[in-house]
Write a protein that binds this DNA or RNA. Structure first.
Lengths: 367, 367
DNA sequence: CTGAAAGCGCTAACAC
DNA sequence: GTGTTAGCGCTTTCAG
């Protein structure tokens, strides 16, 4: 059997290049980094030598000497159930941006629960900076990273964001837009299906912020906000819809932000014989077009700027690394409303008798 | 404005630890690596010193000196449309395995088209080894990696796999199982909806292998194999189903391997009034349970061992790195058949008009 | 069982 | 413009 050949080839070093080009190592280095002027003649000689030797600078050596690894970290919790489409988009967006700038992107699974792991990563000197995903409202990892003095950009945000850079979805705006869309169609009894109760309790930003925004948006229309927490699964969605109907039997619209539950919601509506959008309108927030198009009718959705978020966060981080001022980058991106087939005018109330087909006269809300 | 503080804290070095523990640097190093026996007394002193100083070994320095970065790469094409659930699972599985073994995982977007980028990555000395995803049947990146002498494990496989390590889905087995399941239910006119024609032409392994396996499986049952290529989107799936019906008007089963198209297929079936599974049975191959559960009835599917593939590939790579023999790891994992609601007995052939309006017996909406 | 010292391949003063 | 050289923080001989 042929023994495995590992690194049997000795790589050309800067020394080799220098000798071949008849210059000193520093000259080679300066050609590479452009840190000081080099005459066109020698630069050419050096470049030729490099090409001939197939020279590639050694990343570790360079990192050690320059104290800049050109590696950035993407820190994210990765539980067994995997990533949703939106989170996956963060990753690919960030990876593309890093790669385009000549940086390497290390994916580190780090639960929100262990700031110590983060601290260890931060002090290993491997990362020039990090992007932290799935930030909790109160997140120990942020402090750990800051103490280590590591440049940091969040996707999502903590409760107090002073001195922090972040990019996040504008949940307030998103929820308001969703609610306005439904109310504009005449809906009054709207139920919001949020993430799980435990996620809310844990201070998961999207869940908390949309909850508050929903309450505010409904209040603005003098409507009563009803929210149901749902596990992130089709089964959870079915249960949530059942709970919603139990609580508001004559609901005409469901607002959801739960890419997994949404399908359960639709399934349960179908089982109960409630047509979408004839009887019940459905809006899905923070959803990718791919997912929205999966069902029939396609979902009216607030499309999450997934890849853009990842890209922008990474670009902000890299700008920070490339010197520049220590300006904090704080940015909220709205989800854009894309109206598809799952929303329509509110059905007249089925309340007492089939009665008044009046489509939503100015109906003074309950209370 | 406050200037950005970056790495303002000087990290403790091995030297500091050595001084504090009153030993030499080498002793500290050996305590860390365990490469030679150290008396219990000094080891304790050293460990204490480390703890007191909050010492963390510098990854770059260690990498340079030992010529082992403890970084592995995950090379994957990342086009705009993002990753499917299965590919995402590869990534998370691999990341978890690497992290558990104390390795860092670098995500590198590398199209199958540019082996030069791969060559550059390979010779930078940043990676101890790499896992290559989305391998084409004839893939220039593999050769580039091998020439660089970099330990390598594929997820997927090339046409000729001699001397290569890989983990892949057993497509032959998977297709046969799917076809047998349908044939066992009495289906004869089965159409296979594959990936896009361009993917097949490009030699995308899963598309090519399932095509061949489908032909073989149908032949074994003396049935005629009809395959339709489909774009990876709901719209593509709708078009594919239309094409399928045009070609085989009385088809009773659709086999698909296209997580995106499958929803279009189901949608178009609904539009055409063909009940699932009453009129048409649907089997989805290489699909995650989450996706299968999304629709109603839930999809009978061949569940892809997504995260397991990523994990196993990474573990094989790490084993290779941790010395051991240069044994090639070649392994095929089957997808396991999970029968859900989308398959049932074949409907009797419809004579003239198209429309067995009978809802085909009791169809209790499970759960 | 422990130390001293020679690099790993590169960057960045410091010279000229 | 270019060369010399002292590190970067660690691993790993080579000596005891």
């Amino acid at each position: 059997m042929v023994p495995l050949r590992v690194k049997e080839v000795r790589m050309a070093t800067m020394h080799d290049v220098a000798r071949r080009a008849r210059v000193s190592v520093s000259t080679v280095s300066y050609v590479l980094t452009g840190t000081r002027p080099i005459s066109e003649a020698t630069r050419t000689r050096v470049l030729e030598a490099m090409a001939e030797l197939g020279y590639q600078p050694n990343a570790m050596a360079r990192g050690l000497a320059s104290r800049r690894s050109r590696i950035v970290g993407l820190l994210m919790p990765m539980d067994e159930r995997g990533l949703g489409a939106t989170e996956t988009a963060f990753v690919t967006g960030a990876a593309a941006a890093a790669s385009a700038a000549g940086y390497h992107l290390v994916l580190s699974p780090v639960g929100a629960a262990d700031p110590d792991v983060v601290r260890r990563l931060a002090t290993q000197g491997m990362f020039d900076g990090v992007v932290l995903m799935e930030v909790q409202v109160d997140d120990g990892r942020v402090a750990a990273l800051q103490e280590a003095g590591l440049p940091l950009v969040l996707i999502g945000r903590t409760g107090d964001t002073t001195g922090l850079s972040y990019v996040d979805i504008d949940f307030e705006q998103t929820v308001h837009e969703a609610v306005d869309h439904l109310v504009g169609l005449g809906h009054r009894r709207i139920v919001y299906v949020n993430h799980s109760a435990s996620a809310i309790a844990a201070g998961y930003g999207p869940a908390v912020r949309t909850r508050d925004a929903f309450v505010a948006a409904m209040a603005r229309h003098r409507l009563e906000p009803v929210m149901i927490a749902s596990e992130d699964s089709a089964a959870g969605g079915r249960a949530a819809l059942s709970a919603a109907v139990a609580q508001v039997p004559d609901l005409t619209a469901v607002l959801a932000m739960n890419e997994s539950a949404i399908f359960g919601i639709l399934g349960e509506l179908a089982v109960r014989g409630r047509a979408v959008p004839g009887d019940v309108s459905v809006v899905s927030m923070v959803t990718s077009p791919q997912v929205a198009e999966l069902v029939h009718p396609a979902l009216t959705a607030l499309t999450s700027p997934g890849a853009a978020l990842g890209r922008i966060a990474m670009e902000a981080l890299l700008r920070q690394l490339e010197g520049a001022a220590g300006q904090n980058h704080q940015q909220l991106l709205p989800c854009v409303l894309e109206i598809r087939g799952s929303t329509g005018p509110a059905a007249p109330p089925v309340g007492g008798a089939g009665g008044g087909a009046e489509p939503a006269g100015a109906d003074p809300p309950d209370r």
